[in-house]
């Protein structure tokens, strides 16, 4: 979004680096590349923002990879998820058109594997500073002096309330 600048707290680690080309999968530590591509298609189907670049969804999948490396139970759930979505139609999930991908996901909404993928996509996609910038969330502020002089009361399309209200 123009006119704003999104900031992550400077104490936090920088975003995961992700390559722009197909070699991005080389950063995976645990997930199989086919699994990663299917999870990428799932993340984009669950939260389809046409204006966002591919790399923000790739970063989500690289977070899934870290989760899987950290937790065998999570790794198992990601594998189950991919098995299910790939078995649901005569084509692999990531080759399906959007409406079929949506139908496959709707058919498994109550499963634990779906829940993990859906919740984890929300957790990481909307915590990405590039997504913050795109949607107008400016984020960390103390290191910039807060918002006291940076627009905390700059809304001008409604009348100002009476002073001291």
């Amino acid at each position: 979004m123009e006119g704003i600048k999104a900031h992550k707290d400077p104490k936090l680690p920088p975003p995961i680096e992700v390559a722009e080309g197909p070699e991005w999968v080389e950063a995976l530590t645990l997930l199989d590349r086919d699994v990663a591509h299917t999870l990428l298609a799932a993340a984009r189907t669950l939260y389809p923002h046409d204006g966002l670049p591919e790399r923000v969804y790739r970063r989500v999948v690289l977070h899934f990879d870290r989760m899987a490396a950290h937790s065998p139970a999570a790794a198992q759930s990601f594998a189950e998820f991919v098995d299910r979505v790939d078995a649901a139609m005569p084509l692999p999930f990531r080759e399906l058109s959007e409406s079929y991908r949506v139908a496959v996901l709707k058919g498994m909404e109550t499963s634990a594997a779906f829940r993990l993928v859906q919740r984890s996509t929300v957790r990481f996609l909307y915590d990405d500073v590039e997504v913050w910038q795109a949607f107008g969330y400016e984020g960390a502020s103390v290191h910039l002096g807060g918002y006291a002089t940076r627009g905390f009361n700059d809304l001008d399309w409604l009348p100002d309330p009476p002073a001291g209200i």
């Binding site: 979004m1 996901l105 929300v122 909307y126 949607f135 107008g136 969330y137």
Partner: peptide, 27 residues
């Protein structure tokens, strides 16, 4: 903020309708 608005708006909600709402975060 955007991270928790997205998480708590309606946990379990996904798809183009959700995406269209959360893209308007600044509004």
């Amino acid at each position: 903020g955007l991270p928790t608005t997205a998480a708590f708006l309606d946990p379990g909600w996904w798809g183009r309708d959700f995406a269209g709402v959360i893209e308007r975060y600044a509004h």
